[in-house]
Amino acid sequence: MATQHSRSSARLMMAPAVVLLLGWMLVPLTMTLYFSFKKYLPLRGGDLGWVGFDNYARFLTSSAFWPSVQTTLVIVGGVLAITVVLGIFLAILLNQPMWGQGMVRILVIAPFFVMPTVSALVWKNMFMDPNYGLLAHLWKLFGATPVEWLSQASLPSIIMIVSWQWLPFATLILLTAIQSLDSEQLEAAEMDGALAHKRFAYITLPHLGRAITVVILIQTIFLLSIFAEIFVTTGGAFGTKTLSYLIFQRVLESQNVGLGSAGGVYAIILANIVAYFLVRIVGKNLDA
């Protein structure tokens, strides 16, 4: 509801943001597409001409491709599962009456503010180091042999580090949602004879639906592109090479831009598949 005049000014005012994002999306994308059809080795001869779909075929058939897709999905899925489940538990716990609730919130949210590079370094060296790490000391205390976390259990270790970073976010969003739950609903259910676990399953959990959607959406956006956590800890070794990291290695370490660009196109396709489903779910859930 508005006038023609305000509609045209609305388009004008939206233009900078839309044009910038469109440029940010299209310009590099076009260049990536262009490179992906070339043999392009900046340090070994530069542009060596068109190669058609060679890069795509090579990237797809390289032994590292499918494992990297799998690794990506395992990390994203693992972190989502851990943060949502623990987040619900923590949100319910923090919603109980207690002393010093504000202070506990401050403790819980802290990891969210820690730079990924810092958290990866701290976890790698001070906790997961098999000689001096705190976890090694803990294992020895119980007479067990310390685990070489980042080589023997590399994927779970990375999932754990990333979950630690994102658990606060999930917890606080879910806590906000729980606090908005009308306590009369729960009391009515209690009057109707529903036991605690039924009240959780039939009232609390459905109420959290939107919040869980938001948590999944935002976290997926950030998790698909995790970089520092792998760069700093394993450098992609021990089966922790995500698709992003594989491409990063092709482009920067082996300086094969053509091959890396073809990989980039695959990554973009994968991201679009994920985005498509997410946007459909979220679009339904958010009244934009």
Binding site: M31, F227, V257, G264, N272
Partner: peptide, 13 residues
């Protein structure tokens, strides 16, 4: 959804 574009995909450009 532009936020989901993998950064590595466009790093070199």
């Amino acid at each position: 959804s532009t936020k989901m574009l993998p950064a590595v995909g466009v790093l070199y450009p």
